[in-house]
Nucleic acid binder design. Structure first.
Lengths: 219, 219
DNA sequence: GAGGCTAGTGACAGTCACTGACAATTGACA
DNA sequence: TGTCAATTGTCAGTGACTGTCACTAGCCTC
């Protein structure tokens, strides 16, 4: 591809600066205590310009998340078609976690993004938006899974159901990670694996045995 | 109990009127196109008073939902302790669906509430709040389930995981119901049963068999 | 490389959700 | 009946967001 023109590069720089400054202010002072004016002033653009880049104050908080999601969707598309749905999703998340680092670092320090993620989890207004975005993702994923299995997502509820269950676990994972003390990338990866391992067993009728000992359901 | 005083009754009437008028305006004109001033004017109170009853414009949209949730939690508390977790939750939802009608009708027509529910599902800002509220519910439910099973919710992830999977399915149910054409109470009840029946089978590795025929996992 | 075109920006005014402060009103209750 | 406390209205202010319009600066053509 050709190098984008000056105009384009300038826009990209402004956008990245807005994201970086916003996340810094949000994580430092808190989301609510940061005004859009502050962000705009720090980047030296007008408030109006901020809203031309991001349709809302919330949106800027999810700009990096958005990149991560695209990566996951891409990874899911690459999974071999003979993998079972849950395995494909599991492997896609794990492989996404492995390669996000570099992609994020081009815009903001990874550490800042992780702090931002925890801020989202602990800020009610952002948590709400985060969850809605997650369900939009679920719809996307459901369609991919359905396509893999040769099913019509509007005829057969199983793709949406499996994805809903899977995403539910992923959400709890993010939550627990956010509440814990180990804020590293490795920690969230490990939690992801651990929690997904519980998904099958958690659904069997008897829980009184220890995890892993009971008659497991899914792989 | 004694009859509440005039002051108390007046407050209750104002509150109910605000809810009813709000839901009517929301469902008629749309949530975004309805201002708090409109609602307050229609009930003949000041905007300031509206915000003394509801901390936000969103909150009034969920006032009825709130009642329904309380009912579910109560029903769950009543389930016999030997029921498996998923069964207890399933039966609690179904029994809640059976008795909501009357409780709601004291405040707003049931039909209005059902329309409001669909409006919530289709209004991004409200959907976001709805989802966050759902996760708060999940936390409550997880603790009840953990208690039933004699587990510590912070030690053993299985209660949260099972509840997350369960709630995921319930959410998809609500979504599908909202998108469908049959907006009746019976329809959502039937969907609930049908979708929950898929939860176990959807998690087994092989989907290529028809539902129910494959080697099922959970009950 | 001058000039027109247009994307991007700033300035400004306005709407709407929401909050704090204070004064006015009105049930409750001695 | 008069006092107290809860409830409400009014007013002023903040912050998110939008429409409009004039202006500036890359871009592209001749």
């Amino acid at each position: 591809m050709t190098v984008p023109g000056l105009r384009e590069r300038k826009k990209q720089r402004t956008r990245d600066a807005l994201i970086r400054v916003a996340l810094e202010l949000f994580t430092d002072q808190g989301y609510e205590r940061t005004t859009v004016d502050e962000i705009a002033d720090a980047v030296d653009v007008s408030q109006r310009t901020f809203f031309r880049y991001f349709s809302s104050k919330e949106e800027v908080a999810f700009a990096v998340q958005h990149m991560v999601e695209e990566r996951f969707v891409h990874a899911l598309g690459q999974r071999p078609p003979d993998e079972a749905p849950l395995d494909a999703m599991r492997n896609a998340v794990l492989s996404a976690w492995d390669t996000i680092g570099e992609a994020i670092a081009e815009v903001v320090p990874v550490e800042l993004h992780l702090r931002a993620y925890r801020m989202i989890e602990s800020t009610p207004a952002l948590l709400a938006v985060h969850l809605r975005r997650s369900t939009e993702m679920e719809e996307t994923i459901s369609r991919i899974i359905a396509a893999r299995e040769g099913l019509d997502v509007d005829e057969d509820p199983r793709p949406r159901i499996a994805v809903a269950a899977f995403s539910g676990v992923m959400r709890v994972t993010g939550q627990m990670w956010g509440r814990g003390t180990d804020g590293s990338l490795e920690a969230i990866r490990a939690l992801t694996e651990e929690y997904l391992d519980h998904l099958g067993p958690a659904l069997v009728p008897h829980w009184r045995d220890r995890p892993g000992e009971g008659p497991g359901a899914a792989a």
